[in-house]
């Protein structure tokens, strides 16, 4: 995690608590899970199962499957298709199941 490359233009947004990789964060409530990860400064959300290279959300419309993360223990969820919910647990994937 580093400084975020993205900012939220909505002033005083409603906040929502999410738990990303076991750490609690406050994020604007209207964010998608993929949006929340970018907002919090995650440059990558998973490692590629074949090459091990870092990957990040790409299409944000459910086509590319690059943003697969674990949401509330459900594996391989597309982060771009879900909105953050209070106390949602989001885990980025550093080691894929196939390994």
């Amino acid at each position: 995690m580093t400084d975020s490359l993205f900012s939220c233009l909505i002033e005083n947004p409603l906040q929502c608590t999410v738990v990303v990789n076991n750490v609690e964060h406050q994020v604007p409530a209207q964010l998608s899970v993929a949006g929340a990860l970018l907002y919090l400064g995650h440059r990558q959300v998973r490692q590629h199962s074949v090459s091990g290279e870092a990957r990040a959300p790409f299409c944000h419309m459910g086509v590319c499957f690059e943003c697969l993360v674990t949401i509330n223990k459900g594996q391989q969820q597309r982060a771009c298709l879900q909105q953050v919910m209070p106390n949602m647990r989001i885990d980025t994937v550093t080691k894929e199941l196939t390994q």
Binding site: L5, F6, S7, C8, L9, I10, P13, P28, Q30, L31, S32, G35, A36, L38, Y39, R43, Q44, E53, A54, R55, A56, P57, F58, C59, H60, M61, C80, Q83
Partner: peptide, 25 residues
Amino acid sequence: WHKPGVMTAGAGQILLKSSGLLPKE
């Protein structure tokens, strides 16, 4: 094009529509 930091313009616009997110640059 597969590296983190690269996305489609459509993705950029969806981030704006759904989440109100803008890239700083």
